[in-house]
Amino acid sequence: MVQPNSPSPQPEARRSSWGLFLAFLAAGGGTVLVADNLSDVLGVAAPVFFGLAYYLIHRSSRLRRFSTITYAFFVFALVISVLHLVLDSSLVNGLLPFPLTALLSTR
């Protein structure tokens, strides 16, 4: 029996996988850059962006399968931003743990 001459789906799937890899890398790397290194300038831009993206993706029936990963990026960006806001505050900055201050003062 002659098989229908259909194109192999493998290269297409590989391209799609590579595209997703780059997209996730851009999202994760971008979040680290914006929320971690540029937080002084851009503030809470990253969590707002991913929060909005999650809301829109969750509402779309075609893109809904990406909603869990977008939510993960939202949590990631939010936590990094909050971490910076809290740790950069003068209140927390002054809290060098007591055992360390005691050790340093003995030198």
Binding site: S17, L20, F21, F24, G28, R65, T68, I69, A72, F76
Partner: peptide
């Protein structure tokens, strides 16, 4: 992320 990436990659 790991288990969430695993759904796609």
């Amino acid at each position: 992320f790991l288990k969430r990436y695993d759904a796609f990659l």
